[in-house]
């Protein structure tokens, strides 16, 4: 369908798809979030990282990590519970084995960083600072490691963000956890610490029990929920956060269709991420990009940027 906006005809091809996050232009607003797409090679039969707005690669830490014992995956109604526990080959191996290829194909790369301590984060980001990664994403919110995640404390979030901003010139995204009393307090703390953007939500703490064996379905006992089950929670948190801060937001959690992406952007997201959806449909990111073009042209929207925060309340 062709609609008119002003005097110009809007076709799917003419819809403005690029968005800007912290000074970096993404060719479209669709990102695959960390932990759901490896380092970009596993879905090559379906999409290639440079076709996306950006790829957020699996969390990296200074040293390799084994992660949690299996089983690490359980199903929940309309979603997934995982306890991977940040298994990764370490930042040096990422830089030597994965990053050169990602850059050679022209992908925009978000490095998701994790550590046990603030020193770990600073060291890892320091190592990444001299590389071709486009943005740093601080994963302060993973529920799958022992102890309270940093994202549960506004003070610690602000302090870590400030410290990391001093270590790198690259844009810093802080990835927020939904497992907090007030997401806006943490969002404001990240902004105060100098975060260039926020991404939310990470997975929601959950648990399932096999009633036949009376054992938890995950060896780690608890895990993080993702997929359609968490979508309304994510929309609510993105909306509240976008009202509380003035930095760009990458919104995700349960997005499976272009309509979901539109909804998330209306709630206040500047870009969206779609991860668990690929477990059902490996082509989901591309379908969402195409679907966004079509939805915008069908609805007289000339650029996806117009969607951000366009929800009408009151």
């Amino acid at each position: 369908m062709v609609t008119e906006s002003g005097n110009k005809k809007i076709t799917p091809e003419s819809v403005g798809m690029s968005v800007e996050i912290a000074g970096i232009t993404l060719k479209n607003p669709v990102i695959t979030p960390s932990g759901t797409c490896g380092y970009g090679r596993d879905y090559l039969d379906f999409w290639s990282p440079e076709q996306l707005g950006a790829i957020a690669v699996k969390a990296v830490s200074v040293k390799p990590r084994d992660g949690n014992p299996p089983p690490r995956i359980a199903e929940i109604p309309s979603g997934v519970l995982n306890s991977i526990g940040l298994e990764n080959p370490g930042v040096h191996k990422f830089i030597s084995d994965e990053l050169p290829w990602l850059k050679s194909i022209g992908a925009t790369v978000i490095a998701n960083v994790v550590g046990y301590t603030d020193d770990d984060y600073a060291e890892c980001v320091g190592i990444l600072d001299g590389t071709g990664v486009d943005m740093i994403e601080l994963n302060i919110s993973c529920p799958n490691v022992k102890g309270t995640p940093i994202s549960a404390s506004a003070e610690r979030t602000e302090a870590l963000t400030k410290r990391i901003k001093g270590v790198t010139k690259k844009p810093v995204i802080v990835k927020l956890s939904p497992n907090v009393t007030s997401i806006t307090d943490i969002a404001k703390a990240a902004e105060a610490g100098g975060a260039d953007a926020l991404s939310l939500i990470n997975t929601v703490m959950g648990m399932r029990i096999n009633i036949k064996t009376r054992r938890p379905m995950l060896k780690n006992i608890t895990g993080g929920m993702s997929g359609p089950a968490v979508f309304p929670l994510a929309v609510r948190m993105v909306w509240q956060t976008s009202n509380a801060v003035n930095i760009p937001i990458i919104g995700g959690g349960g997005i499976t269709t272009a309509e979901d992406a539109v909804e998330m952007m209306m709630a206040g997201a500047d870009a969206v991420s779609c991860g668990t959806a690929m477990f059902s449909d490996p082509s989901a990111p591309l379908k969402i990009i195409e679907g966004l073009r079509r939805w915008c042209s069908d609805n007289g929207v000339g650029s996806v940027r117009e969607l951000t925060g366009s929800v009408v309340t009151g």
Partner: peptide, 10 residues
């Protein structure tokens, strides 16, 4: 999870 090597679930 993914079945294709991306999620480290299996």
């Amino acid at each position: 999870g993914c079945g294709v090597g991306a999620c480290m679930g299996c």
